[in-house]
Structure formats: structure tokens, C-alpha cells
């Protein structure tokens, strides 16, 4: 992945999470993967198009998703959730949208033109994701609620 793209994604993930969750956010070591990867249980996906093609995947366990969604809802004076209902799913989707949106805005300022697709969310057990043709950048984020893995797979149009 082009080096200029890395920081916008890492920074916006950090900033957005810190802002909406008001908690400690720690970034783990970045890594690269090209094989298929297990999905922890809840995966929100946002597609990217424009100068590049690819997608960003936000992957977390169901438990983490419930806690993160609850924290976001409570900060807006809404009720916490106990299971991953429609409200919970919509909240996680929105989080994915916020992070990717901010990253794309930063990239626009660096003169890279990206568009977003509407986010989608997948839940289930024993899921895997694979992009045999695109190498994925893994940004692990540690939160008090658990771990979120941001998996960015984009490539230049050739």
C-alpha cells in the first residue's frame, strides 16, 4: 500500500475512537497480510473507489461491538444495548463511516481522490475474509472494550 495512505487511516482511527468513546486508545504494530484472515465476529466494511480500488474492514468480536456501541449510545444520552440489535449494528456502521470518512478527507487534502461506498455490516461465526490480489494493511487498535482490527486493502488502478 502506498505509504502516503497509511497515516491518514491510522490517525483518523485514533482520533475518531478517542473522540467518540472518550477512553484510552492504543495502536498496535502495523503489519501486512495477503492470505485469508479470520473475522472476529462483527465486520463493518466500507468500499473505496477513485484513484484506488479496495475496501476498509473494521473487525471486532461481538462482545466488543456491543460495548463500543453502548459507549457511543450512552455518550449521546441513549440507552446501552445488551445484544447486537439493529441499533447496535447501525452504531458500528456509523463508526466505520466516520473513521473512513475522516481518512478520505485527509487524503483529499493530499490530492488523492477517493470515493466511499455506503458501509455494510456482517455478523456471524467462523467467517473469513480474503483478497488474494490485494495486500492488506492491518492496524490493530486496543480499547478498554476489546480489540478492533482495521484492515485496509487498497491498490492503485493500473
Amino acid at each position: 500500500m502506498r505509504v502516503e495512505y497509511i497515516n491518514p487511516f491510522v490517525e483518523s482511527a485514533y482520533n475518531v475512537l478517542k473522540e467518540v468513546l472518550q477512553c484510552e486508545v492504543n495502536r498496535g504494530e502495523l503489519s501486512l497480510k495477503s492470505t485469508s484472515m479470520p473475522v472476529l465476529g462483527v465486520a463493518a466494511i466500507v468500499g473505496l473507489a477513485g484513484d484506488v480500488e479496495g475496501r476498509v474492514l473494521f473487525d471486532m468480536s461481538r462482545d466488543t461491538a456491543i460495548k463500543v456501541a453502548s459507549a457511543m449510545l450512552e455518550s449521546m444520552d441513549m440507552e446501552a444495548i445488551t445484544e447486537l440489535n439493529d441499533m447496535g449494528r447501525a452504531t458500528i456502521t456509523e463508526l466505520a463511516n466516520m473513521i473512513t470518512g475522516q481518512a478520505v478527507t485527509k487524503l483529499h487534502n493530499l490530492n488523492f481522490k477517493f470515493d466511499l461506498t455506503p458501509p455494510a455490516i456482517f455478523t456471524g461465526d467462523n467467517m473469513e475474509v480474503s483478497n488474494p490480489d490485494v495486500e492488506a494493511l492491518i492496524v490493530p487498535i486496543e480499547l478498554p472494550m476489546g480489540k478492533i482490527e482495521i484492515n485496509v486493502a487498497v491498490r492503485e488502478r493500473t
Binding site: M1, R2, V3, S34, P132, D133, E135, R155, E156, T158
Partner: peptide, 15 residues
């Protein structure tokens, strides 16, 4: 020049 953070052995999508 396009500098990429990438493992060369994963490069399957290059022209």
C-alpha cells in the same frame, strides 16, 4: 515513483 509499504512476495496485482 510510487512508494508502497508492501511485502514484495505478495505483489500479484502489479502491471
Amino acid at each position: 515513483i510510487l512508494f508502497e509499504y508492501s511485502d514484495a512476495l505478495h505483489s500479484t496485482s502489479l502491471p
